[in-house]
Amino acid sequence: MYLKNSLSTVTLLIALLSCSSDDVADQNQAENPQSQESMYFPPLNSNDWETKSVTSLGWNQSKIPDLLNYLQTKNSKSFIILQNGRIVMENYFDSHTSSSVWYWASAGKTLTSTVTGIAEQEGFININHKVSDYIGNGWTSEPLTKENLITCKHLLTMTSGLDDALGDNVAPNNLQYKADVETRWAYHNVYVKLQDIVSQATGKTWSDYFNTKLRDKIGMNGNWIQNGDNSVYWSNTRSMARFGLLALNNGNWNGSQIVNANYFNNATNTSQNINLSYGYLWWLNGKTSYHLPQSQLQFPGKLIPNAPDDMYCALGKNDQKIYVVPSKKLVIIRMGNAADNVNLALSDFDDVLWQKINAVIN
């Protein structure tokens, strides 16, 4: 009799706990409906893309006009917010349309970072090996003993020690010794040598390898266009959003791991001990200090104070932006002309823009 009563009591307690758990889950889902929603990936080779309304997310609709007005007055061409992969806002300005293409500028560095990771996972390169293993000796003007210290990883992390004051030209006579590797962080165009490395190692042109292994895998459009000493990527805004969605999912696209997740995790975390706010050609928020292009100064605090601490981003000349926020499952894209003055990456525009974004999403 005692055992029977005990079993009945246990059964009742389990039932009560189950009901309590279900009630909490229902309440959490009601308060935060997107938390239970699956990640969405738009189909390849299609303009179809699922959307989500601002009101269904509980965002502040009344703050949207202020955000859009700010974007328009700051010379924007396009703006997209994805939440869980679905389009919540998509706006175009100044005769720009969904089919118009625009340049990524240095935001495209993250494309080079990603394809470098793909080449490594396929066994063509090792980022810890020296650059000259792939493109031969004499690719710089440094003494051979110094040149042979520069690895692919040093190009990814901007710690090659090469002189960044000599311009964007990456011919050997313009790549000169400034400091030993890993002793100096400097924003330098020499990262483009990674494209030569991938091309040499794979036996493919950079564009062909990029298109096959990344662009076409996630349904992007666009092409690399030579601009002086740089090869710059141009695409429509949704293509930039597709890449941001890949980044949000740690290199995974709808169940297919495009780039190794461990590599991508390393790429979006601090990569060296000089500029804590820099990964593998990705900028990182929420760190205790940061460096900026063309400066050896260390600035205290977060890169973008108004943005979430876990955000990582691609920043390009004249305010081309990809913001990725894992904690909120957000991807935010901005393309356009310089908001204010010409700049290489970060500008005051970032922090004010995030202030206005926060007014909508919080």
Rank of each mutant, 00 (worst) to 15 (best):
N128Y: 10
H154F: 03
N174S: 13
N358K: 13
T110D: 00
I127S: 00
T51A: 08
N262G: 13
Y134P: 06
V190L: 05
G203H: 14
A314D: 02
G244R: 00
V181L: 02
T73A: 08
Q320L: 07
N250G: 00
N28W: 05
I197T: 07
D22V: 14
P33I: 02
I87G: 02
S271M: 06
Y70I: 04
N60R: 12
V10W: 14
N341F: 11
L175Q: 09
V88Q: 04
Q29I: 10
A345S: 14
T73M: 09
I361V: 14
L248V: 06
Q200P: 07
Y290S: 03
E147P: 06
T202P: 12
S231P: 07
G136F: 10
G301A: 04
D94Y: 07
Y103P: 06
L149T: 10
R242E: 11
S106V: 06
K302L: 05
Q27K: 12
M1N: 15
Y280D: 00
H291G: 10
V331W: 01
P42N: 12
V190Y: 00
L111I: 07
A247S: 10
I197K: 08
T73Q: 13
V331N: 01
F124Q: 04
R334S: 00
D229E: 10
D196A: 13
V131Q: 02
D348Q: 08
K74H: 15
N148K: 15
L330R: 03
M311F: 10
I197A: 11
A119H: 08
T55H: 10
T202K: 08
W139Q: 00
G316R: 03
A247C: 07
K321Q: 09
N285P: 03
N5C: 13
R242K: 14
T140W: 04
S106E: 06
N236F: 07
L44I: 15
S98V: 09
Y134V: 09
G316T: 06
T112R: 01
P172T: 01
A307Y: 09
Y191K: 02
P300K: 10
F299V: 11
Q226A: 15
P308Y: 12
I357H: 01
S53K: 04
S277L: 04
P293I: 01
N75T: 08
G108P: 01
D163Q: 06
S35R: 06
N306K: 15
I333R: 05
V324S: 00
I135S: 05
L353Q: 00
G279Y: 00
Q83S: 09
T202I: 10
G161D: 06
Y278D: 02
G301T: 04
L297M: 15
M220T: 08
I87W: 04
S327Q: 04
S56P: 05
S18R: 11
S207V: 09
N306D: 14
N266W: 05
Q176G: 10
N45Y: 15
V198E: 08
L353N: 01
V259P: 02
L303K: 04
A338H: 10
I135R: 01
F299W: 13
P305Q: 08
S347A: 06
L68R: 07
A107D: 03
S99L: 13
S289Q: 08
